[in-house]
């Protein structure tokens, strides 16, 4: 780590800059479809950083669940809830206050990070890539009960979403 900037760090910073610029695009874009497209770019940046951190499984899950399923759901919701008659203001009245609060939060977080001394492992051999088999062992032995609960939660949530969004015949 001391011999200077390695290629991994260069790739990390490129991905980080792409991710952060896309994230700024998500929260400032004047068009809601552009915001969704910026969101896809930001998710791809996060997946790239997962790859740099040698967790391919989470990168794959990120691309498959976030990059496809969640983004398609959000695009559908954007198309279904677009008000047709008048152009809408996309920002609320409390925008300056919100920006100030976010900047304060950022200052607090970065201050906390800088004030703490982190121990980074010395040699790059300390980073062993986490294999798929190890993750599967952990999920299906140590974390099996949370895994089952999260599966039940997911199916209940999806059923509830269908219930909420489906039209009811008795009301109208």
């Amino acid at each position: 780590m001391e011999e200077g900037v390695t290629a991994t760090q260069v790739v990390f910073w490129i991905l980080a800059v792409v991710m952060l610029i896309s994230a700024i695009g998500v929260v400032t874009a004047g068009n809601i479809v552009y915001a969704a497209l910026f969101f896809i770019a930001s998710l791809a940046g996060v997946a790239g950083i997962y790859l740099i951190l040698t967790v391919e499984f989470i990168a794959l899950v990120q691309l498959l669940i976030y990059g496809s399923a969640v983004v398609i759901l959000i695009l559908f919701a954007l198309m279904l809830t677009r008000a047709r008659e008048r152009p809408q203001a996309l920002f609320g009245r409390s925008r300056p206050l919100g920006i100030a609060a976010a900047l304060g939060l950022l200052a607090a977080l970065i201050g906390g990070i800088v004030a703490t001394t982190w121990t980074t492992p010395e040699s790059s051999t300390a980073f062993e890539p986490v294999g798929l088999q190890a993750i599967g062992d952990a999920i299906f032995t140590l974390w099996i009960v949370p895994f089952i609960i999260v599966g039940v939660l997911l199916s209940i949530a999806l059923d509830g979403a269908i219930m909420l969004a489906s039209p009811d015949e008795d009301d109208n």
Binding site: V27, F91, A101, L105, L106
Partner: peptide, 20 residues
């Protein structure tokens, strides 16, 4: 990650549209 979190917080605090 802190910068990304703060950007997300800024979006939550400034946007009007529920999907955004």
């Amino acid at each position: 990650n802190a910068v990304l979190f703060a950007i997300g917080a800024m979006g939550v605090l400034t946007r009007r549209n529920a999907v955004l």
